[in-house]
Write a protein that binds this DNA or RNA. Structure first.
Lengths: 388, 388
DNA sequence: ACAGCTTAATTCGCGCCTTGATTTAACTCG
DNA sequence: CGAGTTAAATCAAGGCGCGAATTAAGCTGT
């Protein structure tokens, strides 16, 4: 029955402070005036809050706008060196760690190879902790200046002790081990989630409210992140759409079901379908080059066209259900398919969604490289910081 | 960049007032103490706000709890007669109108037959306006005591002047015509939306947060309403899921696409599939009895089992994507299918969704009759009232 | 170069809110 | 019937945002 936190007048103040801070963060260098307009707060309140923030060292004045007759407005920004955030991307073959300042410039990074098939959660945890000290040392950042660590983990992050996806892998245990090894605040999300966050925060188009990010990669599955109706910063994971049924009773999927989207547009799935359609590809070829080759030339099998169509249908369903303002296609498989013929995907999505919903949606390619994941993970503690 | 309304301290007050009012509304007769516990407000604040509300006639004291040694707590409730709300359900063959007091007891209702194929928006508007005066007269409620009118319309309600679904039907025009004919505040939603709202407000299970309502009817399409993470009262339409692709390249759907869910589990679709599978049904049979007959005995065609499976797969996708706490199956087709074998649907949904998501979801049948629609529509102005 | 103008930022008093403490009200029980 | 107990109202205090007034800091034209 509860709804809003700011019940008390004190909470209201903290709330407006965070509102202002977030607004400032996203509008980069901004004057007090601009902040007032953006937040709806009066000049007096903006002044007061800014004074506090400057006093705490969170915000600094940085240059000023040229005047045209009056007193020039001083520009404000969040002090990049006030604190630092760490992002961790736990892949299947390696762990990536990045340390960023508040302006999200990367100050240090570290890679740790792992073999997820053979090494368990304990190894992953110790690797992460080791990488953490490494980036701290490299960047000469004091541990207590780190605001938090965001970790993107494979699979779903839903907290259940029992029943994890892969036998050797236990997200709950990872949390325990990590929190035992460091005092830093930890934040967790799925890999799809952190990649989506990266796109939402730093991707093309920027802060469009109501953005759905559809990620396609072999080792990533597919996921969705939804930037709430408000904006930026307030992104919330929604769910997985890789296992939506697209062909009832169709191809078996590794999830145990049949006809899932992933069983058609996942990397391995595309390769399998290519082979079945008579396409020739070396048996021991690596996934990425093999897929790239198919996308470049599908040897007349029609697999590529079909894949575009499947993907478009899946996206169409997404559009019907979530009615987003923008769909961003990402993940290396998604990028490969989209770069080749995004219009084919758009077209299929159009055919498989309601006219009106489709008309108010744009479908774009993700513009970020694969190493954006750590950056996306680092937005987890950053967001926590901005929300006070 | 804006996010929360209560920026100013005055708004905070209004906000808490509405919080309290809503809390009171849903916890029926409640003491001041209970309200304090429920809302988190202090006894002092509760007392003050309640005094105001009583002064305005919105809330009345009604009995008191037996004491066990101390002063007994007086019970409060929203005065049912403080105001009234009207719900309108615009179907394809008739318009239903209901007038309710704040306790949502129906004081009067009216039916108007229409022929949506032949009569245009103008007729619908005038029928609604006529029905409105009828229920007002019947119930002897003064027009200015009506807080608002909620209208559930066929199709999507997304506001676009151009490009409406059916040629003779124009939701935007309807809004214009109605607002020209009455001064009462108008609220609009889709028919799926109002039916979903009814389930959310008055249905079994009650106020579970994160409830998705899946409606299946021939003339209704399928829709989804999502009760936000907060609670009751704050429901927001999400989208249509009747045209999610379930069988890529499958049966043609009236939406122009192929393989939509509706093309398999819509009433006509089930009948068609039944006939194609060799089932015998009179050519001129009415939809409902015909479908009921099939559900009762599908003559060994397997169509029923198949339908359950399709529907389950569709619901599974819903679960993956939205991760609701509860899925409620409604609409007359949905009820028919669910009453026959809900477990088959559950089972198919389980097979087609991620283990964890499914485990945290329950799938139930809608418990409301078909005439709940006007009641659901009337929650639109009611909610507006409760939100201040 | 200097008054006069213009605009930014700060300061100040007001009204409003919630809260904890205190007081009053209303009932039970021995 | 008075002591005890609990509910509700009242009161004073502390905070917050806002508009108005004030101060700060540049331009501009002669």
């Amino acid at each position: 029955m509860t709804q809003r936190q700011p019940r008390t007048v004190g909470a209201l103040g903290r709330d407006n402070r965070s509102l202002l801070l977030r607004s400032l963060y996203f509008s980069a260098p901004a004057s007090r005036q601009a902040l007032g307009a953006a937040t709806g707060l009066s000049a007096a309140s903006v002044g007061k809050v800014v004074r506090e923030l400057v006093g705490e060292g969170i915000v600094t004045e940085d240059g000023s706008l040229d005047s045209d007759g009056g007193r020039p407005r001083k520009l404000l920004r969040v002090a990049p060196g006030y604190g630092f955030v760490v992002g961790v991307d736990v892949g299947e073959t390696r762990i990536r760690i990045g340390l960023f300042d508040l302006a999200m410039t990367e100050l240090a990074k570290a890679d740790r190879l792992i073999d997820s098939r053979r090494q368990g959660t304990e190894t992953v945890a110790s690797r992460i902790l080791a990488g953490l000290t490494t980036v701290l040392r490299k960047s000469a950042v004091a541990s207590d200046a780190v605001l938090g660590v965001g970790v993107g983990m494979p699979g779903s992050v839903r907290r259940t002790p029992e029943r994890t996806e892969s036998p050797g892998w236990n997200p709950v245990l990872l949390e325990q081990l990590l929190s035992r090894g460091t005092d830093l605040p930890l934040h967790f999300d799925s890999r799809a989630g952190i990649t989506g966050r990266a796109e939402l925060w730093f991707g093309s188009g920027g802060e469009t409210p109501g953005t759905v990010v559809a990620l396609l990669g072999s080792d990533l599955g597919a996921g969705v992140v939804f930037g709430g109706p408000t904006t930026h910063g307030t992104s919330t994971g929604v769910g997985e759409f890789g296992h939506t049924v697209l062909v009832a009773g169709g191809r078996p999927c590794r999830c145990g079901s049949r006809g899932c989207l992933e069983a058609y547009v996942g990397a391995e799935a595309i390769l399998d379908r290519f082979r079945e359609a008579g396409g020739i590809i070396p048996e021991d070829a690596d996934l990425r080059p093999a897929l790239a080759a198919i996308v470049h030339d599908d040897q007349g099998t029609g697999v590529l066209t079909e894949t575009h169509r499947y993907l478009g249908a899946g996206i169409g369903g997404l559009i019907n259900l979530l009615n987003p303002a923008r769909v961003v296609l990402g993940g290396w498989v998604g990028l490969l398919l989209g770069e080749r013929n995004l219009d084919a995907i758009r077209d299929a999505a159009r055919r498989h969604s309601l006219k009106h919903s489709f008309a108010t949606t744009t479908i774009d390619l993700c513009s970020l490289g694969p190493d954006a994941a750590t950056r996306g993970a680092a937005t987890l503690p950053l967001e926590h910081f901005l929300n006070g």
